[in-house]
Amino acid sequence: MDRPHHFNKYVYRYGLMVVIASLVSLYSFCALSSPKASADESTSYVRVIHASPFVGTADVFVDGKPFLNGFRFASVTDYAALPAGNHKVQIALVGKGIGAAALTKTLPVQAGEAYTIAAVGASPQTLNLQVFVDDNRVVANYSKVRIYHLIPDAGTITVSIGEDTTIKDMAYQDNSDYVTVDSGPCTFAFTMPSSNEKMTLPRTLAANTVTSVFAVGMLHGNPKAQLVAATTQGIPGLPQTGSDPNAMPAPTSIPASPIWLLAMALLGLLGLGITRHFRRSA
């Protein structure tokens, strides 16, 4: 039995395995340490709320194509992806078609931004699309809240969010700053100083979410004033991604240690040297 020959054969195979393992490990480290591609930078995100007492149920068209059908008063859509740029938005009474649009407006949207577009106005002369720029970033484990005043005949309003009473003298078609609050039960209280009327909305706020509360309708007319809440998932602690309401937290990158990379490279070279030596000896 030729023991040296078998030994050489064993060492050769071992060296070959070391080379392969080193290459695989090196590739894995490089893949993990590479930054992940960011979300599509040409996309914006848009949601729509129907807050016009004048229009009633409507159809909405964007760039000449149906976008929303049978859109009822006080309805809020989820966010929808929309290419950045200028878009022609038209609103028509339900079933009347785009040719009978009561409102036509061109709206610019920027890449990476999120928007709330509100159909507002209590008469043909005041019918309009009000655009709000949203920010869905949140502080981890907290909730964030924003108020939108869309009641035409309410005058200025004051809003309390639980114990927070910082929102005062909001004008029609205005929005509040974002307020960060603890998650859990919360009551929104809207007061109209001009008429001493008050509306409340109890709500349970989940952590890492953004809740929008819209005051819509008419205090002295129809449809009646009401509070409508919409909640979207926030993105905790990740600047540059909060504008995408549907974004998931980016995977954590693992930096490749220079020492580990050097060690794997040397191990690979060692294995390659062993392999070449015993191939010549075989």
Rank of each mutant, 00 (worst) to 15 (best):
G162E: 07
V89I: 15
F132S: 10
G121N: 07
V131K: 06
L103D: 03
R146Q: 11
F132P: 03
T106K: 02
A80M: 14
A100E: 15
L150A: 12
A119P: 03
L107Q: 11
T77R: 07
S75A: 13
T57A: 08
L127Q: 05
K144H: 01
Q130P: 01
A80L: 14
A111V: 12
L150T: 04
A102D: 09
V62Y: 00
A119C: 13
F54Q: 05
V94C: 07
S52V: 05
I147P: 02
D164V: 12
T166N: 10
A84N: 09
N69G: 13
R72I: 05
P83V: 10
A154Y: 06
E113W: 01
I161Y: 05
P108A: 13
Y142L: 10
S143A: 15
T126G: 10
A92L: 03
G70N: 13
A122P: 06
Q90C: 06
V139M: 13
I117S: 07
K105P: 11
I117R: 13
N69Q: 15
T104R: 14
T156S: 11
G64F: 10
I161N: 02
Q130V: 13
A101Q: 02
I147L: 15
V60L: 13
L82G: 09
F67M: 11
G70S: 15
A84H: 13
L129A: 10
D135Q: 12
Q125I: 05
D63W: 01
D164P: 05
A101K: 04
H149K: 11
G155I: 01
Y115G: 06
T126W: 09
A119W: 03
D59C: 02
N141F: 06
G162M: 03
S123T: 14
D59F: 09
V94L: 08
I117F: 10
F54G: 00
G64H: 04
S160E: 09
F132Y: 15
K88E: 06
P83R: 12
P108N: 01
D59W: 09
Y142W: 06
I161G: 00
D153T: 07
E113P: 00
Q125A: 14
S160R: 14
E113C: 04
A80E: 12
A101W: 02
Y115V: 10
Y142T: 13
L150K: 04
A58K: 04
N141R: 12
T158L: 00
F71Y: 14
V62N: 00
